[in-house]
Measured scan of single mutants.
Amino acid sequence: QNEKLANELKSLLDELNVNELATGSLNTYYKRTIKISGQKAMYALKSKDFKKMSEAKYQLQKIYNEIDEA
Rank of each mutant, 00 (worst) to 15 (best):
Q61R: 06
N19S: 08
K10M: 08
S25I: 07
A6L: 08
I34Y: 02
E20P: 06
G24E: 15
N2A: 13
Q61Y: 04
E8I: 04
N2V: 15
L21A: 10
E20Q: 10
Y30E: 03
D14S: 10
A70T: 04
K52E: 11
Q39A: 10
S47D: 04
M53Y: 02
Q1I: 14
K46E: 12
N17L: 14
A41Y: 02
N65M: 13
E66S: 05
D14R: 12
S25V: 10
A70N: 03
Q1D: 14
L45A: 02
T33G: 07
L13K: 00
K51H: 09
R32K: 13
G38E: 06
Y58F: 11
E8Y: 04
A70S: 05
I36D: 07
L5K: 01
L26W: 05
N7G: 09
E55W: 09
L16F: 10
S37V: 15
N17H: 14
N65C: 13
Q1W: 11
V18L: 12
Y64Q: 06
M42S: 05
K62H: 05
V18G: 08
Q61A: 07
K40E: 06
E69T: 12
K57E: 02
K40T: 07
K31C: 09
G24V: 12
I67G: 01
D68K: 15
S47P: 00
L45V: 03
T28Y: 13
Y29H: 05
K35L: 10
L5M: 05
K52Q: 11
E20T: 14
K48E: 05
A44R: 00
E3K: 09
S54G: 05
L60N: 00
A22W: 08
Q59T: 06
M53S: 00
K48A: 06
Q39H: 07
G38L: 15
D68E: 13
K52A: 11
R32S: 07
L16R: 03
L16T: 02
E3I: 09
K57H: 06
Y30G: 01
G24M: 14
S47R: 05
N65V: 06
L60D: 00
Q39K: 09
K57D: 00
L5S: 01
D49G: 02
D68I: 15
D68Y: 15
V18R: 14
N27S: 15
L12H: 00
L45P: 00
K4N: 09
E20Y: 14
L60F: 01
M42V: 10
Y30M: 05
D14A: 12
S37Y: 15
T28R: 12
L26G: 03
T23I: 07
N17T: 13
Y58N: 09
S11W: 08
N65F: 09
K51Y: 08
A44L: 03
L45I: 06
L12F: 02
K46V: 08
K62V: 04
S37T: 11
N19C: 14
S25C: 14
Y29F: 05
A6H: 06
K10H: 05
I34N: 00
N19K: 15
I34F: 03
S25K: 12
A70P: 03
Y29R: 05
I63C: 04
E15H: 11
K57W: 07
L9S: 01
Q59P: 00
Q59C: 14
K40F: 15
S11N: 11
S54K: 12
D68A: 15
